[in-house]
Each structure stands twice: as C-alpha cells, then as structure tokens.
Design a protein around this nucleic acid. Structure first.
Lengths: 340, 340
DNA sequence: CTGTTAGCGCGTTCAC
DNA sequence: GTGAACGCGCTAACAG
C-alpha cells in the first residue's frame, strides 16, 4: 500500500509541530486562523484521513461491534444482520461479522479472537453445537472480562447478559391455535432436537394450545428433525401418519412439508393446513404461499445493537441484565384458511 | 469494561521489563527458561491476551477485510459472504461487513470510512445507484491510494482492479438455449434496468441464443423491471403478451412469473417453461421447483478473498489487474422439460 | 540473558 | 499562538 499521509508528514512539510496540525484540523481556537487555513488546505489537498487504528488505540475503543451467528444463508439471520448493521451505523459503529457454522469449536475460537480488543462489544446467537454440549464457559469468560454482550434468539439463562428473543412459546401457541381454528385435529409438529431451545419453546406453545383444546399431544406426530440426516425422508415419514396439518419451526421444513402434502394428494388449504416459521422468501413465493410466524429479525437485530451500544457507552452504571421479548405475528397466507 | 491486563502490568508485577515479557511470551530463546516460565504462568493465570489494536498499529496491518454489498437478504449475496468469510478465516483474516443498500451515497461514505486504515483491503459489489449515475470517483480514489480492491459480480471496466464475475453472457445464452430446446419460441425476458450491467450482459446472452435460432428478438417481450414500482404488476403485464416461456434474471422475478403463469392457466413445464437466476431457496422449494442458473456465490466470494489477500500480502509485485470469470451452471428442475 | 530506547499515529497537557 | 513531551500497547534494534 502507498505511504499514507499522517499528521507528522503534514507538520514536517509545513514546518510546524504535529500538535499544531492536530489542533488545526480540529479547528481549535488555540490556532491562528492563518495557520489553520494553511494546514486544512494542505490536508484537504492530500486527502488526509486520520488513522483510525491510532485513534482506537488512544481512545481504547474501536467503534466496532462483533456479530457471531450460526449461519447466514437463512432469511432470519440475514435480516438480523441488516438490523444490526443499520442500528450500528446510526450510532457511528461498524460491524464485524463471523459465523460459527453451528460449531462449538469455531464459536469458542471466534469469541476469543474478537475479545482481544478488536471490538467494543458482541452480539451472538449461540451455535447449536454449543447448545448441545451445554458448555458455556467461553461466554462466562467474556462476562467476567466485562465485555458487553447481547445474546439473541438462541439464548441460555446461565449466561448473565442482555438478551433479545422472540416470544417463542407464544408463537408456537398462536400458530397451533390458528390450525385448530382451521378445524384441524391431527397437527404434526416439525421441530428441532431438544437442545435447540427455541424449538423446545415453540413446542411448549404447541402443547399448550392442544391442551386448551382438550387434545392429547401424540408423540408420534412430533418429529425432531436431525439436520445431519436426510431431512426430506424424516418429513415424509411423518406423513405416513394420519395428519391434517403441519406446524414447522422454520420455513424449509414447511416448504418440504408442503411438497410432501401435495404428493399425498392433500388439498391445501381446503383439507390440509401448513404453518411455518420465519417470514422469508420461500413462504412468500411458494404456491400456495405459506402462512407463517414472522420473527421480525430486523427489529431484533436493531434492538440488540441498541441495547449493546447503550451498555458500551454507559459502562458506569450497575449491571442489571435485561431481556427484551419481541412478540411475533402470524402472517396469514394461502396455506391455511382465514380465521373466522 | 474491566481493566485489561497488559504486558506492562505483567512486567511491573514480576519486576522485569516489558520487552522481557514480550519476548518470554513469544518463547524467545533470548530469555532464560526460568523467567519464561514465571512470566508465562502469570500471563496464563490472568488470561493475558495481546491487544490487537496495538499490534495492528505497529504492524500497519489489521488482518481485516472490508466487504461492501448492495444488500444481504438475497441468497446470492448471502452465499458470497459465506465464501468470503471462510476464505478469510483460512488465512487468518476477519471480515467487516457493510451494506450500501443500493445507494450511491452510502457506498461513498462506507468506502471512505473503511479506507481510513481499518481494513487491509476491500471486496465490493457496486450499488445499483452508483451504476446508474456512473460516478466511480470514490473507487478511483481507492485505487490511487493503492488500497487493494476486488470487485465482484457487479463490476465496471473503468475501475482498475481485480474482478470476479460470473459468465453472465454465457449464462443468459445457456438459459435461453435450454428454453429453445424445450420448443419455446416466445420467450419473455425479465431483467433489470440497463445500468445494472449484469442484467445487460445476461440479455446479450439471451439475444445471442435467439439469433442463433433465427428468432427475432421482440422488445415487447423484454421487461426491465423497475424495483421502485410494483414488481408484480410489471410482470403480470408481460403475461398479457402471447408467451410460452420466461427467463428471469433473479429468483424473485422467476417466482413471481411462475405465479402469474399458473394464474393464466399455463401448465408448467408441459406448455410453459421458466428459468430463473440464483440457485436459492425459492427455486429449490417452490413447486414446481425452478430450473435456474447457479451463480456459485460461495465460490465467487472465496476466489475474491483469495485474490485480495494475495494482493495484500505481495504488494511488491507489479499491479496487473486480473479478472476471474466463474462459469455458471444450468440447474435443471421441474419448471422446464429435460433437454433431449 | 535482560533492559533501554524508539516508534507505529494521534491527541492532550503543559510549558514557552 | 505554538511546540515538546507523554502515553495508548507492543515489538525490534540495540546496549549492557
């Protein structure tokens, strides 16, 4: 890279001291109008930009927020990133994005690297690998170092920090209730393995709605999809049961369920209903389009980053972890009948 | 944030000099085994991490790559980010992600901020706003400052730097040819306004294939979709013409076209064919699933970052801009008939 | 083997 | 009104 122009070079070139330059560039009243103009003109001409690294080192803050997500090719997380980025920008921050790829190991490494001073704070959604082995020590270390941290969506209580989550139980409840209102009785649930707690919470909502309708939950209708194995096969297996509706905890499962339902000859939504999760492109553009729970990833991202920046900038205050719950909406589309 | 432990504190605590600590931590042979152990033990115990900011300032490199994309809630760009991130990680780099939101103004600002020393190089896909007003001065400045830059997907020749693109002309050609082989004669093209050059290139391929088949291109069958207006309306308008196939330059247009085609009562793929662009979730999960051009965003991202890092690390060499063309594949699905 | 010095680029304090 | 000195955290060159 080309030699960058610094305060020092300007000072030498103009025969003044570096501090004079520094002050002049900040339009300080300590400097005579004359020299200020000279210096500013020179800086302008040579396109001087203060070196942010030096500033960061001096100020002990980077104005950068680290973001660690399990994956990105996923509508929900994409929108979260958008929200975080927008919120960060508004406050003069930038974001550094990393992915754990659902791996515990990579999450630990990334967390370690980012906490070496390159970011002022972190926003993390926990990898499923970590949720599975339940080892949260790396987060504990972070908290001990008092590095501001906000957990989003996939959170665990053990970690003492701010959190932003969707109302997963409520969402599961709303979705299931809507299916019941469609007159469905045999509602299959396509969910994640238990350790992914959002799946577990949505399931709670599902069960709650069934109980209220005096329907016994049938374990055979609940499939905990193992993403390591063939997903379609697992879903098709569910369709071997006698079912009249599906509630899927993400949009891919919902889309696959729709395919399976069509193949079985079910008419949607006349005699079969489907609800998904994540208001992404698939739900919107499949046909019939899929009724879904909108998670509002953008809002979550934005709230998370606002919370984080507040924490960063008001470090004096006593630390009382906050938890923000974003309520989710049912977005009615063609895969279910309108509620009466 | 809690007071961080530094080399200095260790030095003071252990009654040695900072340079001794520095060397000891690097396991230098200059230091006696005894002191090394003492120091390392202490550092370990207090979980010492070298401050990356200081290192960056000293080494004049950040090991960070800036990435500026027009948007993210888009399968192609998501996969690009994945590729960039993975490639960067492999070489010990991190990525700082920003979005121009297709806006010229934001692109200029972001470019300026990131080029103040916070990144070692940049990967950019140009905002459509910039392509429209054709003002590339901000990129010129970057090149003049000799900040390594790689342009991907949306590139322009005026900017002298490395580039990674897909073979858009070839892709348009392949897609159109496949439709012709399906026996289609009246192929509509749903593309972007002309200033988005990838759209223009794909159109060239489309026209080339038609010419080879001795079919005159009919301007009425070509719709340059204006994203500011209602997209569906514009697409439905195309269907007022007598057409038997659609080639769409992205998957959203393809999905919308599919809806419109179904409404018109066309049977897909028996008497109507559709091809999209971007092998994303919509194409995969809609029904019928959509034959599409796979752009290989992951590969592009990875190639781009490898090119960039090479440029960063071998700055001595003479600068000869490279252009890598990634060939695209036609991914056959249900919305077209198999080629005979 | 260990310590001193200097410098990365900047801003601030305190003399002059 | 201007400049010298210092420090942010670290390391390389040089001294001892």
């Amino acid at each position: 890279m080309k030699q960058k122009i610094t305060i020092k070079t300007i000072a030498k070139e103009l025969g003044v001291s570096t501090s004079t330059v520094s002050k002049a560039l900040k339009d300080s009243h300590e400097i005579s109008k004359e020299t200020k103009e000279r210096i500013q003109a020179y800086a302008d001409y040579y396109n001087y930009k203060p070196n942010s690294l030096a500033l960061q080192l001096r100020n002990q803050k980077t104005k950068v927020i680290g973001v660690i997500l399990p994956k990105i090719v996923h509508h929900f997380f994409s929108t979260v990133i958008m929200g975080v980025e927008e919120g960060a920008n508004e406050k003069g921050y930038h974001i550094m994005v990393c992915f754990s790829n659902e791996s515990y190991k990579k999450e630990v490494e990334t967390l370690k690297v980012l906490s070496n001073g390159s970011v002022d704070g972190l926003i993390v959604s926990i990898a499923s690998g970590t949720l599975e082995n339940k080892d949260f020590k790396h987060f504990g270390d972070l908290v001990a170092e008092e590095i501001p941290l906000v957990l989003i969506d996939r959170v665990v209580d053990e970690i003492l920090c701010d959190k932003v989550v969707v109302d997963d139980v409520g969402a599961g409840y709303k979705a299931t209730k809507h299916l019941l209102e469609n007159g469905r009785k045999k509602i299959a649930l396509l969910t994640t393995p238990k350790h992914v707690n959002v799946g577990a919470l949505r399931r709670q909502g599902y069960e709650k709605a069934l109980i209220e309708a005096y329907i016994k939950t049938d374990p055979n209708l609940i499939a905990e999809i193992d993403e390591e194995a063939n997903i379609s096969d697992q879903i098709e297996k569910v369709f071997e049961q006698d079912i009249d509706a599906v509630f899927a905890v993400n949009e891919i499962y919902a889309a696959k369920a729709m395919r399976a339902a069509k193949q079985k000859g079910h008419k949607i939504p006349e005699d079969f209903s489907i609800i998904g999760f994540t208001d992404g492109l698939i739900s919107r553009y499949s046909s019939p389009s899929i009724t879904t729970i909108a998670q509002h990833g953008f809002v979550m991202g934005k709230q998370a980053v606002e919370l984080l920046i507040e924490r960063i900038e008001k470090e004096s205050e006593i630390y009382k972890p906050k938890k923000i719950v974003i309520s989710s909406d049912l977005k009615l589309r063609e895969s279910t009948k309108p509620s009466s």
